[in-house]
Amino acid sequence: MNANSKTGETIGVTVRLLANLNTYSPIGKECFKLTIARQETVADFLDRFNIPSVLKPIVVINGRPAKPMTRLSDGDSVLVYEPVTGG
């Protein structure tokens, strides 16, 4: 939550850019909070990080796979990662 979210213009989300993707973190850290426009789509959200499309980033919101047109909500927890092997 943030001040503006009460007015309905923006929302707050928690973002984690995993492993090599934290190179694209705006603050250089893997996990950070972000204020974004209400109704922002996953596609728009991803654009802001300039992650090369060759890395095919995956977006998971609150533990559920998200599609490019999925809209983010206030308080969402967003995990972004390159499709990855291992386990």
Partner: peptide, 10 residues
């Protein structure tokens, strides 16, 4: 990512 984080990435 596996070089950066190893399988602990999961």
């Amino acid at each position: 990512p596996l070089r950066v984080n190893g399988t602990a990435n999961t």
